[in-house]
């Protein structure tokens, strides 16, 4: 081991403007975390959840007719798949797996102290990790729904093309992708914050699921503390309450998208601010194991 003269790096090469430094640090966190999120073996469940419907739709397309009359029916099927499967189950559980592990994973693998020992504000760490999770989840679920959408309309040929490019199709696609991103932000912040308080996310996760599912029966003030409250108002195609699921899709107090989007983002920001307070007080305790 050789001993070259020590010259502190502290003055050299480190960006001095705080905002610049924070951006550089968030990018560095994203580089580390995105790779982990996309490659992690335990995240195979997220891929399965996301791409399951793609397989189902592929079968539906192969076996079903391509009669243009079925197009509007398929639009409703797609709306069902999005709201009942993606929003309520896949994105919910996907975010639960992904976001709780952002923090818990570091504790279980005993690597959190490397982050805590870097000259990075812990708030920046939370924001970086949250963004990494949000980008990963939005990418996976967005891509999966994009595939569903593409498959569903592609097999109608010209009629499908016309629906997408000259009709309401493209607008609906963007709306779906937007809602997907918002869902990932909303659920992501909830689960990230939960993982900072509680070790095992299963029980609180179940509580959140109940809350999100039955929020419609709550008083209107409490409804606003639910992610689903905002999301369902933003979906481009509303579900027909013709099945036993009417409880889940009843809209008690409609809110315009101009309120729903900022409302959700505020909820999300409030949860993240809580998480930041929490992480500042966090101690490394696994070192004593």
């Amino acid at each position: 081991m050789s001993v070259p003269a020590q010259k502190p790096v502290t003055q050299q090469a480190v960006n001095t403007r705080p905002v610049q430094l924070w951006v550089a640090q968030i990018l560095a966190i994203l580089r580390i975390e995105l790779k982990k999120n996309l490659m992690k073996k335990r995240n195979i469940w997220i891929y399965l959840l996301a791409f399951g419907p793609v397989v189902v739709i592929a079968l539906h397309v192969l076996l079903g007719s391509s009669d243009p009359g079925g197009l509007s029916e398929d639009t409703n099927i797609l709306a069902d798949i999005f709201q009942l499967f993606y929003l309520r189950l896949a994105i919910f559980f996907g975010c639960m797996i992904l976001f709780t592990w952002l923090y818990r994973g570091e504790v279980v693998e005993k690597s959190l102290h490397y982050y805590f020992l870097a000259p990075v504000r812990r708030e920046i760490l939370i924001i970086g990790k949250f963004l990494a999770g949000a980008i990963t989840a939005t990418f996976i679920f967005g891509l999966a729904f994009f595939c569903c959408f593409g498959l569903m309309y592609a097999h109608y040929g010209r009629a499908g093309m016309a629906f997408v490019f000259s009709g309401p199709g493209l607008g609906q696609l963007f709306a779906y992708l937007g809602v997907t991103a918002l869902a990932c932000l909303g659920y992501g912040s909830v689960f990230l914050a939960l993982s900072l308080i509680i070790k095992n996310p299963i029980l609180p996760g179940a509580a959140v699921l109940l809350w999100e599912t039955f929020h419609a029966v709550l008083p209107s003030l409490l409804q606003k503390f639910s992610v689903m409250f905002y999301l369902k108002q933003l979906c481009p195609v509303s579900l027909l309450p013709d099945d036993g699921l009417s409880l889940f899709i009843v809209i008690t107090e409609p809110v315009s998208p101009w309120l729903a989007v900022p409302g959700l983002l505020c909820l999300c920001a409030a949860i993240l601010i809580f998480a930041c307070f929490r992480i500042r007080r966090t101690e490394i305790s696994y070192l004593a194991d």
């Binding site: 502290t10 430094l21 580390i32 982990k36 102290h113 000259p119 990075v120 194991d289």
Partner: peptide, 19 residues
């Protein structure tokens, strides 16, 4: 932390690495 950890290097007792 932004100031302090420029000056500190800590090799902890725990033999763990990011995965």
């Amino acid at each position: 932390p932004e100031e302090l950890f420029r000056y500190i290097g800590y090799c902890a007792q725990f033999d763990s690495f990011p995965k």
